[in-house]
Each structure stands twice: as C-alpha cells, then as structure tokens.
Design a protein around this nucleic acid. Sequence first.
DNA 1: TGGCGTTGTGGGAGCGCTCCCACGTAGGCT
DNA 2: AGCCTACGTGGGAGCGCTCCCACAACGCCA
Lengths: 345, 345
Amino acid sequence: MAMNGRHSGRPTLEEVALRAGVGRGTVSRVINGSPRVSDRAKAAVEAAIAELGYVPNRAARALAGNRTDAIALVIPEPETRLFAEPYFSDIIRGIGAELADTDMQLLLTLIRTPKERARFAQYLAAHRVDGVLLVSVHEDDPLPDLLEQLEMPAVLNGRRSDLESVSYVDADNVGGARAAVAHLIARGRRQVATITGPPDMYVARSRLDGYRQAVESAAGGLGGFDTALVARGDFTEEGGRRAMRELLVRRPGIDGVFAASDVMAAGARAVLREAGRRVPEDVALVGFEDSAIARHMDPALTSVRQPTEEMGRTMARVLLEEIAERASVRRHVVLATELVQRDSV
Amino acid sequence: MAMNGRHSGRPTLEEVALRAGVGRGTVSRVINGSPRVSDRAKAAVEAAIAELGYVPNRAARALAGNRTDAIALVIPEPETRLFAEPYFSDIIRGIGAELADTDMQLLLTLIRTPKERARFAQYLAAHRVDGVLLVSVHEDDPLPDLLEQLEMPAVLNGRRSDLESVSYVDADNVGGARAAVAHLIARGRRQVATITGPPDMYVARSRLDGYRQAVESAAGGLGGFDTALVARGDFTEEGGRRAMRELLVRRPGIDGVFAASDVMAAGARAVLREAGRRVPEDVALVGFEDSAIARHMDPALTSVRQPTEEMGRTMARVLLEEIAERASVRRHVVLATELVQRDSV
DNA sequence: TGGCGTTGTGGGAGCGCTCCCACGTAGGCT
DNA sequence: AGCCTACGTGGGAGCGCTCCCACAACGCCA
C-alpha cells in the first residue's frame, strides 16, 4: 500500500491492473462489461477491485468517453410551488427508483429566469448531461425544440400538443376526465359543470375533452354539451373559487362539478359552502390528481388518480433507452388513470 | 472554424488561447479569476470566449483540479412521502436559489435501502461530490459520522441531538412550540395537551420542550406540567388519531391541543369531530409546519411556520463556505419560527 | 551600472480514464 | 504443413483541463 507523492489515496485503474497482473485495457473491459475477456482475467480483475476497494473516477471516465453519466431533471421554478403536491415527490421517487441500479446521476435544475434558461441551454450545448427530463412543459416552451435541435435525448412529462415531437410520458387525462364525469352522470347528476385549467395547457384541454366526451355520449336528459357549464380556472384555488361563482350565477341548478384539479376543487368547495350548497347532497364534486388535499377535504374528495410514480419510472426508463441507442426514435407513452371514489359524490 | 478529425465541435481552452493570441495558462487564469493577468490579456481572452461561445469542460476540470463542482442533496427514501409537503419543495427552492449563480451542480440522491446507503458511502469515499446536504436525519443515522470521518463538508437540515457535531441549519422548534402553547393559554385554555412526535427524534423532543416551557411558565391555574396531557404520536395522521383518543380518555376536560405536526393535528381533528367536540369552541387546536393541510382543514389550522426556503438557502450557503475554506469549522444556525393564526384557536 | 524582486506569461506534465491499434496465440481450414 | 481468422490482450495516444516551473520584461534599490 505504498502511497507515493501527490497521490490522492484512491486506487486507480492502473493500480488494479498491476495487482491483477493484467493490462489497463483488460481492467477497463471488465469494468465496462465487455465480452472479450477471458474468465481467468475477469476473475483476477474482480478480485483486485474488491481488495483495493476501487471505484472508477467519474470525471476521468467522462473526459475520456465523452459522456457524463448524468441526466438533468429540469423544473421551471414557477411550477415548484404546484409541485408541493405529492405529484412531484412521486415523480422523483419513480425516477430515483429507475436510476438506482444504473450509475447515472440525477441533476436537479431549477429554472426561474430567462437568464437561467439561457445558461441551461449553454449547459446542454456543452454536453454536460447525457439526457434531460422535463416536467411541466408549457406550449410556448422553447426548451424541447432546443433539445431536439441539439439531438439531446429528452423526455417530457406531459406533452405540449397532439403533435408533440419529443418523447413524452403522459397520463390519460382524457380518459380520467371522462370517467369522472361519467361517474357523476351515473350517480344521477343532470347538470354537470366543469372547471377547466388554462386553455393554453394541453393537459387542461385534454381534461375538458374528456368532460365533453362523457357529456355528449350520455343518453338523453342532459341536453349535450353546454358552454355555460364550462368555467375557466387556472389550476389555482382562487381560480377555482372564481369559476365556481360564475357557474353558480350562470346555472344555479348545477348538481355536479368536475374540477380539472384538486386545488380548484378545494376552491369550488369553499364557494359552495358559502352559497349554502351541501356537498355531495346538493352538488357532487370530483377533482383530478388525487392529491393530499383530496383526502383532507371535508367531505373527502373523489378524484382521478394518476400513476405518478410509475410515470417517473417510465420517464427515466425511456430516457435511458434513448441514450443507449444512437438513433433517436421518439417514444410516446400514455399511462392509464383511475377514479378514486370518496365522499364528495 | 476548422473542424479536424474526431473533434467534438465544442471549442477548447486551447482554441480560445490561440484566438486570443495568448497561452493556455493565461486563459485558464482568466476563467478562474486569477488577479495575475494583465488587463489587455484579460480583455482579449474574454472576447475570444464570447466569439467562440466557449464553455469549460466540466469533466476535464474535475479531473485536473481534483474536485467536482457538485454537491449532493441526500434524501432518505422513507421520508420522501413526508416531503410531499411544501417543506421539501421550499427547501429545494432555497438551495436552488443559493446555487443559481454558482456553477455548482445539485445532485439528487435518494437512499432507500441499506445497500444504497453503502453505495452512496462509496460515492463519497470516491469524492464524487464536493459536499453533502442531508435532510431528515435520524439520531441513529451513521451517514453524518461517516461524512465527518471522511472530512467531507456537510450540512444537516435539523440536528440529531444537542451535541450535534456536524454543521446544521435548524428551525427554532422550541421557540415555535412555546409560542403556540403560550397562545393557547393566552386565549384562556386551561387544560392544554400535546401530541408529540417519536421521542427518538430531536425535533419531536424540542417541540415537547417548548410545550413544557410554556406550560410551566404560565402563571397559576394550570397546575404545571402534567404527563397525562402528553400523548405520543409519530408524525402520522393515524398516530395523531390514536394520541387524541388517549388524551380524551385520560383528561376528558381538555380544551386545547398542541400537535407537533399538522398531519397529526388533522388526525386529532377527525377524532374530536367523532367525539362531538367542536374546534375551536370546545377544543382549540394548533399544529406545526404550516403545511397545505393546515390551510385546507376545517376550520383552518393555526400553525407554526418554519422559514423553509430560507433554511434551504442557508444550508447551501453554509455548505459552500465550508467547501471554500479548507479548515472544517462547524456552523450551527437556528432560524426563527412564527405562529400563523387561523381559525382553530 | 549591476543586482534584486515583482509581475505577467507560456507551456510541460500530469489527472485517470477510453479508444483503438498492434501483437501474440490457438484453432480451423485447405 | 501452411495459411487465415478469430480471440484475448497490452499499452500508446489522447480527452481538456489545472498546476506549477521557468522565463522574460520591467521596474526599483544601492
């Protein structure tokens, strides 16, 4: 265990090679799982690695191999607040689980200003990561296009539009919304309204589509799709309040509401209480997301659950695949949602 | 712009040097802000960097400089669920803000199994990060000691005990609890109970200390500290329920409860409702954390707010300082908490 | 005028890997 | 027997930086 000169203490590849009585190349091949190594050499190298407690130097690897073994998880700062929801931690947990037995590192990148966005673009151009995971992408976000242009592997959580070109993993928003509204109708609700998200978000439009489909396919008595029953929210609680007030004015006879998010449902619930409407007796309510709020509302909110952790896992898996293969085949994955029945309907 | 051979396309230090008409060393000095550079050379280099769009290669830097420019944020997996609270995202936001104009990278490391813990230890030993940020540390966690032993800069969120040796940033749990209970007493409550966290967590003990201090320093009529008014919870909703039931049995005359977390307060609130006690008329309730749950409870829960984002910022700042200076001076920072009054008391 | 420091500078020598070329050596074919 | 193809292997040549030594150029002092 001679520790000569300016040596940092950690064993190097070369030292492993020496100990195993083989060349540097052979050790490298063993580490990287190359098949062109004899069993004898492989065993010797593995023994030497274990004895020395050798851990490859990431930086050297990255420099020589022109890769980084790191992927970035990009979160637009304005969204982080929304992500106080279990949603965010579930996604991260899923990603972490998928990455666990890889030796990929997960870099967390918060982007709050255009300046930081530009800086991150530089990062990308300098190839400081092998791939990028993007959550909460808006339609006008230039980042996905930049990524595509740089031929940087990337996976979005959600999509910007029906024509999304970059790989994505999304939940079945249309199906979830349809199920929620169908449930409301099945329970005998006749005037079912919806509180939507901002129309420039694909996810909001999808949930509205689901609502529309359910309403239109419901047999007689409902009178089909009625725009007066659609109020626009913005995924915030206050937005939910405003929308609910509007709806109450426009259609006082409302007996069911599908809110495109639990937070908006919470806002709507508060307004309903103020207006003296009972939930679910007078007005039934369904949310979307199955967040903690849903469970803690009074009455507990029926909501549409997304397979959040699974989405995280899938995103990571898809990204790793895309990194592994050179050709850039786009993958589009849509995972099923599920209605969680509680007491609000 | 000759692009010879296997060149990756990105300009290198050498190319910048060539363009600026200086040597490699000078460019390096400019980039690293060394003062021993003439203004003329500096200007030339900066121009060349701008023209070429040069971005230093991180891996090469790390390899040559024997550092990584990265810090790890370590989150024990069992905790991630708790961190669905704004707490987690606020901490992250704070860290991100502080790191924004550094070129430190933030690595997210989830640890779920002992195996992964061992692996992370290897990481550390291999010096793949310059420093470590630890959240939600338990008393029996061996990681902080390992970090200390490796002389790896580290900052904990919270502390393991009064004698914590590693640097930490914590909220004033004692003060917050004291304020909460004092408030309860000031509102005329005579029998104020508390639901604690697990006694093997320092944070739980601190909040209990605050409770005790407030009770003991309250003038006559309360009869001082009464162990029958202390029920043990575990920071879960179910634990809050159990504790509340116990309390109701032991001291039916209870008119105030300080729960050491909002989640437990939610559990307690449910039990109180079942028992036909009104909040706050019959029993006043205060939580801790000021989470989303607090705002959404009915009635909205008065709670103790921690300066979460500020804690994140401080953690990052302290860690950067510790990395910058070679000597390992431990820093212990305690940030003030604040009582947020709502409707439950 | 000579010696000394001080300032700015160039560039060699690594950092610890991967890539790849070249070299045995052993087996299969004609 | 001779040749060709594998296979397994060693090690040179980088990857793009930082560190540091050496050296020029310019004062300043005695």
